[in-house]
Write a protein that binds this DNA or RNA. Structure first.
Lengths: 214, 214
DNA sequence: CACCAAACCGCATTATCATGCGATTGTAGA
DNA sequence: TCTACAATCGCATGATAATGCGGTTTGGTG
């Protein structure tokens, strides 16, 4: 049916590298092109093996997996990169995601799932350890809006704020809402007080961060 | 060791509901409080069963799972909600995430993984079907930055832009970078020209939208 | 009815920003 | 070497924004 998936593995820990290599080789449908302890010959490797999927550690001597990521995606954005690492801090997770990683597994993932993940990324999925996924989801959820907040801003004030967030000047906002520029000023003054800020920029940032309500 | 996880299930399809119920009941460490075909008695259910985890379908007669979600989180934000559905469109996925869902499984998920997912959410993870995860990740990745863009902005210009994005005034940026305010002006001028904008706000919005590069 | 909040308007002052013009230095490349 | 450009600094001017103070109208609530 399908052609086999060509995988390239980077992992500095020898035992782990050999373990995963063995698994990959033993799996029908997967061809392990190479397994390297470092990513320093990255470009040559990519050219030589033309992998479909790159499975890589983050912490490696020399160039890290995170540094390698943009190079891989620049070489061929169709290559799916799966991070396999012990790090689960926000910083590295988001750096990986922004860099275009298609999956993020922690090293405590059982071998069978790692294999499954290779198939998943190749098919357009993004396998993620569930604790990692949680961190990702949290960045979408309204930051709790814990302490009430209700509708801190009146409807009109929200209109004005939306105008600011579109990059409009006071005058433009006034025109769009058919009110005078002085009224816009007044509303903005009130918005600033409610949001505890004192500039357009701060207001916009705050509004973006915790979605209109403080 | 641990107390069992109390689960509340909502699923209108009878076969599926009974199938999942059977699985949950057969799993040590999980107690199925109830399995309902609709979510219309939601508040009463929550009060009666005080679940740790709610497993819910999205498409149900009467109130949908998506409508129920905010009510659940409002009742007790500690309840972990796991969406189990056939829908994999962006709209519903993000509505669920924004609403505070802790996991999102498609119905083709094998039973064993559903059970595993219940444990995962309870432990603070966010199990997600990998195709759903992909959609989520895509919202973080730089919008392609299709046409080159290279490093449109010099390193220093990016420093200044970062300052703007933190809401700093020219003066603050100047202080932080140990340069004169006039230099800041100059850099900003150049940034504006490169980004094709003419105000702080526009620059920030543009920078946020397509990640520094235009 | 009296009170209050929201929405509306105006004016004045100071602060900050946007922009034009000009200039020096250092480094990388044609 | 000449050129190009990043990075630095300065001055000046008109445009916006921030803020203080004052005011009217309207709709809802105790």
């Amino acid at each position: 049916m399908d052609k086999p998936i060509t995988v390239l593995l980077y992992e500095d820990n020898r035992d782990l590298r050999e373990g995963i290599s063995f698994l990959l080789q033993a799996t029908p449908g997967i061809v392990l092109a190479a397994a390297c302890p470092h990513v320093n010959n990255l470009k040559a490797d990519l050219a030589a093996y033309t992998p479909d999927v790159v499975l890589t550690d983050i912490g490696m001597p020399g160039m890290t997996g995170l540094e390698a990521l943009p190079i891989i995606k620049a070489t061929n954005p169709n290559i799916q990169v799966l991070m396999l690492t012990v790090f689960d801090d926000d910083e590295r997770i988001f750096q990986a995601i922004r860099g275009g990683a298609s999956g993020y597994l922690l090293k405590n993932t059982p071998p069978a799932e790692i294999i499954q993940a290779v198939f998943d990324v190749y098919r357009g999925g993004s396998p993620m350890t569930s604790s990692v996924a949680r961190k990702v989801l949290q960045h979408f959820q309204q930051p709790a809006k814990v302490s009430s907040s209700e509708q801190l801003l009146s409807a009109r004030e929200q209109d004005i704020l939306k105008g600011l967030m579109k990059g409009y000047s006071y005058k433009l906002i006034a025109d769009e809402l058919h009110i005078s520029i002085d009224t816009v000023r007044t509303h903005i003054r009130n918005v600033y007080e409610k949001l505890q800020v004192n500039s357009k920029t701060e207001a916009i940032l705050k509004a973006m961060k915790d979605g209109f309500l403080g």
